[in-house]
Design a protein around this nucleic acid. Structure first.
Length: 87
DNA sequence: GTTGAGCGTT
């Protein structure tokens, strides 16, 4: 199964593809998505990254959490809605 | 035309 990772403090110039590119260095990214506002269409400044393996997710958290991207420190952590099928 | 805590979308 895939593991969801919450990514916050993202630059407004960041997008889902940028997240996937940056997080793909740590493992296989199943899908990366940046939360964009539906009313304004602009990025809210945070997104989610889905890894195909939990080890890759933790590796990305350890490697990207607190690290400045585009000039701003990213907040990477396990997403809340992990479900109960990740084991 | 902007901004900055926050856990989306089908």
């Amino acid at each position: 199964m895939s593991v969801k990772v919450f990514v916050g403090n993202l630059p407004f110039s960041a997008d889902d593809q940028k997240l996937k590119t940056d997080f793909s260095r740590f493992g296989n990214v199943d899908s990366a998505r940046v939360v964009t506002d539906k009313h304004t269409g602009r990025s809210r400044g945070y997104g989610f990254v889905e890894f195909s393996d939990q080890a890759s997710a933790e590796a990305s958290i350890t490697g990207m959490n607190g690290q400045p991207m585009d000039g701003r420190p990213l907040t990477v952590s396990l997403a809340k809605s992990q479900g109960a099928e990740q084991r």
